[in-house]
């Protein structure tokens, strides 16, 4: 079947066979990774699946002559962001299985599928009806002007046409750094936090690795507020030890 799709793809465009194969493999990697993110019970597995997807997207960037973005994608996304995710997961010690089948909110899952399906079908319907030849001129400069490299053209666009946006993102990054420092800093009055912290540590070390439906924490202040139907769906918080 894959071969049929590849042939169809070759026939509907002026692409070469290697191009089609590259696209097909990358698309498969992307979709597998994405599904892995959504369906993995363990957040660590989700994060690793995310790397797959990001890598596939980087490949498709190269395939579409966006070399600089591909490199940035790998460095920033796969290199920094996913590592940050993993770091937080490890730091908080939440690398355990989640009960994916349980859904405390009634109607959330069917509605989610239906609405997303409507949106997806709508997008595809628009795609089918679209006529891509607009005849519009490139606003920010061509992707191939004068045989210059992609990095040259992108850099020129970013530092001329989008200079103001570029400066604004610089400010945004500074604000984000300051905000992150403020958030992560320990409050001066940390007696309460120390207790919570040590309680979590005890829990982790003491209860081993056996699976089970035991609610892990927060029962006293969490259960009362959960609707009765959610409480009925044990385990209460949908989390299980891995």
């Amino acid at each position: 079947m894959t071969a049929a799709i590849v042939l169809a793809a070759v026939q509907t465009s002026r692409a070469t066979i290697p191009d089609v194969i590259t696209f097909a493999v990358a698309a498969a990697v992307i979709l597998v990774g994405a599904l892995g993110v959504v369906t993995s019970a363990n957040p660590v597995h989700s994060a690793l699946s995310l790397v797959l997807t990001l890598f596939g997207v980087a490949v498709l960037f190269i395939e579409q002559d966006a070399q600089f973005l591909a490199v940035v994608q790998v460095i920033v996304y796969a290199g920094a962001i996913v590592v940050l995710f993993l770091f937080v997961i490890m730091y908080l010690g939440v690398d355990r299985r989640e009960n994916i089948e349980a859904e405390p909110l009634r109607g959330q899952r069917p509605l989610a599928f239906v609405l997303v399906a409507i949106a997806l079908v709508g997008i595809l319907a628009m795609l089918a009806a679209a006529h891509w030849v607009t005849g519009a001129h490139a606003v920010a400069g061509s992707t191939t002007a004068g045989g210059k490299s992609n990095v040259y053209l992108l850099g020129k666009a970013v530092f001329t046409t989008y200079l103001f946006a570029f400066e604004a993102t610089a400010a945004l990054l500074v604000v984000a750094i300051v905000g992150a420092v403020m958030l992560a800093r320990r409050p001066t009055n940390e007696l309460e936090d120390e207790e919570l912290e040590s309680a979590a540590g005890d829990d982790e070390s003491g209860s081993g690795a056996d699976a089970g439906g035991l609610p892990r924490h927060g029962d006293s202040d969490g259960v009362d507020d959960v609707p009765s139907d959610a409480a009925a769906n044990a385990p209460a918080h949908g989390e299980a030890r891995s």
């Binding site: 579409q64 002559d65 966006a66 600089f68 973005l69 940035v72 891509w132 607009t134 519009a136 490139a138 606003v139 920010a140 400069g141 061509s142 992707t143 191939t144 992609n150 053209l153 992108l154 020129k156 666009a157 970013v158 046409t161 989008y162 946006a165 570029f166 993102t169």
Partner: peptide, 15 residues
């Protein structure tokens, strides 16, 4: 960006 030959699309991705 590729279809329209416009570098602007890539610039937006950068941001």
């Amino acid at each position: 960006s590729r279809m329209l030959g416009d570098i602007g699309g890539q610039a937006v991705v950068f941001f």
